[in-house]
Design a protein around this nucleic acid. Structure first.
Lengths: 339, 339
DNA sequence: TTGAAAGCGCTAACAC
DNA sequence: GTGTTAGCGCTTTCAA
């Protein structure tokens, strides 16, 4: 073990006390004379001293780090969110690190356990597997913001997207352009507050508003990845069920659907229109370009930061928790006909 | 501040000493009687005690966490690598967290600074901006494995891909199928040991071996993202320079190229063959499916883990550093004609 | 403006 | 098998 240079070594060399060195390091104003500071700085330099964040943290409780746990590191939606957060938090001198929960409840709960949270000043969890009941017992001492559509105990700050509104927007656009048989990739009998359930609800609402009957054979379950989207469209084509549009619950599924439609010799948007959800960057480079719903990605990232910072900096007065849900916006590209 | 339950509280309640509690927590074999253990466990449960990892770390020096710093959280290549590493490290009771360097030298060096490294038992840095010179002064006490093609001080373990070999493989395949005017997206006068330089070198080597002249007008610089790939193909088409194949230095650029070729009304692979590099998952879902080079992704992840674990667990005897470079493999899909 | 003392919560090392 | 002592490196508190 290489010996470590401590504050004490620096203090000895500069001929001052530990505390003075600490004051220099932390740039505490007016606590140390100009001359002394210079001497300390020089000692630090000569010795190559670096703070031990672990020790500082044990004493002060601050780590300067925010954690973000996502279900899947490859999820383009979540890495895009992470990127937005890194940029914003950097401006406040905070660093963001990413963890993976693999969408497992055990891992999500684990990420909220005291030992894990101790490493962070604040934590953001993208809840996929958990729900209000599962999270009922969790009372983290670290500020936590939850994202995702699951219902969660109202003791948590919560940022979510308008799934119902966004899905209604997408579906209404297709209906307005004349589509009458809209395949829904990812709809079905999911748990009540899950993302698929909510987006399916928006899909049905739009149909009801337009006075168009939903073709139940076209409502296909569990489809979030490219692979899923591809498979479901294949199945639909094989089943011979005609459809003139596809609403995929995620852009990823929509991209897989595009692939399958090309395989089947169907033209987009002439034969089949396609619309996704999430506004991933990849949708700008697909063939054809993907129309989609922007659920308010920037606004959500803003909200997460604000909530976190308010709790971290805002003293002990327990401000009420907040729920933030920005308005969705339609992004029309080549995979739909202009409405 | 909510008061924290400490080991001392548990000890008092169970009527034992701190050390006994510690022994129970750490499941040290044969150090504590069955009855005592039960009493301690109960006290832990009743009090809701959780270890303070910060304190443990300050004392023991272990954190149980490995850091991985990547240039871009949205880079599909790097998140795929992260996923591979999470899986492997989990098996050894280690957790992986991801950080972003934004491909800036300052951030890369920063990530190797003592305070940052203190948070980890081991660290993996994907070097993009740094080189041997920039890293010369860095002497981390935490085990570090470097990945990426930059030359690095040989005091670091280093895992890299065979950029020259992989690029030669891709280019040779195109030449064998009859291509004679192969656009290179991302070639150019980059620094000597950079990825673009090396892959360009492989491209030229394959031409030389096949006795085919490189068309210099088709060698286009800096192209790694979808956007880049798209733009460069657009420019090529606008310039009226004929080409019968595209070798993109990354799959991402290749996907952008596919988009641009479709815009230009060129058929793939009939009019233009396309091949990428990296073997990203996205390449399986593009239209058409993307042929590519697998640089040995699984083998690289294996190597990173082995090197890390050897240094973490392997005592103080300073084993020699190692450089690992797995063999690349061609993945033929729909964007090329079978060779 | 500077310093001394105390202790954050845990575990290594050794005694019993 | 269990307890005692010491201390990881830092910052808080209070005194000078």
């Amino acid at each position: 073990m290489v010996t470590r240079v401590t504050i004490e070594d620096v203090a000895r060399r500069a001929g001052v006390s530990n505390m003075t060195v600490s004051n220099v390091i932390n740039q505490r104003p007016g606590r140390v004379g100009e001359e002394t500071r210079a001497r300390v700085l020089q000692a630090i330099d000569e010795l190559g001293y670096r703070v031990n964040l672990t020790a500082r943290q044990l004493r002060s409780g601050r780590t300067g780090t925010i954690g973000l746990a996502v279900p899947d590191l490859q999820s383009e939606y979540h890495t895009a969110l992470a990127d937005r957060l890194v940029d914003r938090l950097e401006r406040h001198g905070l660093r963001l690190v990413l963890e993976r929960t693999a969408a497992r409840l055990s891992a999500e709960l684990d990420s909220l356990s005291a030992p894990r949270l101790d490493a962070y000043d604040g934590f953001v969890l993208s809840v996929v597997a958990g729900d209000a009941e599962a999270l009922a017992a969790v009372r983290p001492r670290t500020p936590v913001v939850l994202i995702g559509e699951q219902t969660v105990p109202d003791r948590f700050d919560h940022v979510l997207m308008d799934n119902v509104g966004g899905a209604r927007l997408a579906t209404a656009t297709l209906l307005r352009s004349g589509a009458r048989r809209i395949a829904l990739l990812g709809g079905g009998d999911d748990p009540e507050h899950s993302m698929p359930h909510l987006r399916t609800q928006g899909y049905r609402a739009a149909h009801a508003e337009a006075g168009v009957e939903v073709v139940e054979e076209l409502v296909r379950p569990s489809s979030f990845t490219r692979r899923d989207g591809h498979r479901l469209v294949e199945e639909l084509v094989a089943a011979g069920e005609p459809f003139d549009a596809v609403f995929a619950l995620t852009d990823s599924a929509a991209l897989g659907a595009l692939r399958a439609l090309a395989d089947a010799g169907l033209r987009v948007p002439e034969d089949v229109q396609v619309i996704g959800f999430d506004d991933l960057d990849a949708g700008r480079w697909s063939v054809p370009r993907l129309s989609t719903v922007d659920p308010g990605n920037d606004a959500m990232a803003d909200a997460v930061c604000e909530l976190l910072l308010a709790r971290i900096e805002g003293g002990p007065d327990p401000r009420p928790t907040r729920v933030v849900m920005p308005p969705p916006r339609l992004v029309e590209r080549g995979s739909t006909r202009l409405s």
